[in-house]
Design a protein around this nucleic acid. Structure first.
Lengths: 132, 132
DNA sequence: CATATAATTCAACACATGTTGAACTATCTC
DNA sequence: GAGATAGTTCAACATGTGTTGAATTATATG
């Protein structure tokens, strides 16, 4: 039983890299506003730009970031392909919501397990485990 | 009834600025790992640095960011005040979790409400509402 | 009071990224 | 095919921020 100082750090219950990647894209005020518009049914570039007073190239830039992490999908109009409609990727949103809720669940908070402090100075280097 | 094109954009159900601020802090891989350690009960600077192989000043920097948005709280050891213990701010985490779950609830997704597209070209400028 | 310890603060750097204006694509209409 | 429309891509810039090493603070010990 190889056990470092009789304390094991539990692995994160979700894919932290993917979560960080998606949060990074969402953690931008204007992108959150765009995302909110998409949640509300707004979908074309021009309307988003109008609603938020942003130039079309900026809207395009932010939408591409949201697309890159799979949270938003795109589709061209069947009758007039000049119009491009963006919408929320529901399955990706469900996955994100579940991952976030799992990782940031307050019930996951564990009580302090002191391995540092005045009692046991185990943070010092050169600790020799005598377990052999 | 002053109504722009007979469509109203619903306001976001949460404080988007605060949410973006907190997400921005969390959307950093190493900070997510630090947060995960705190969730697991790890609390002092040195132990976090050991677990993640980070220098103490970097750990300090990330912890201060987490503190700045209220997600982490700090406390000095009663017996030896050199030791500083960090921990999750439970109420802040509960608030964040609730806000995230509300805003990113897949059931909030509305169907497309076309006000742009080949049918109605309402994105064009100089639209004169004849409501007077 | 001198030394050691735990952690923070500071200055400097490198890199990422939101923003801007112009150029470019793709598509439709006449 | 020429012109118009919806949107994207490109280059350049400014700003923010994670990282690093050194200096500093706060506290405890002998």
């Amino acid at each position: 039983m190889l056990n470092y100082l009789s304390r094991e750090i539990k692995p994160a219950p979700v894919n932290l890299e993917r979560l960080a990647e998606q949060l990074k894209v969402l953690a931008e005020p204007k992108r959150l506003l765009i995302f909110n518009l998409l949640m509300d049914g707004v979908q074309c570039n021009c309307e988003i730009g109008e609603a938020l007073d942003l130039p079309p190239n900026l809207v395009s830039h932010h939408l591409s970031k949201l697309r890159a992490v799979g949270l938003v999908k795109v589709e061209r109009d069947a009758q007039d392909a000049r119009w491009i409609y963006y919408s929320i990727n529901r399955s990706a949103l469900e996955e994100l919501n579940a991952a976030f809720g799992t990782f940031f669940d307050p019930n996951r908070i564990q009580p302090r397990r002191p391995s540092c402090g005045p009692q046991n100075s185990l943070c010092l280097p050169n600790i020799s485990l005598t377990s052999e």
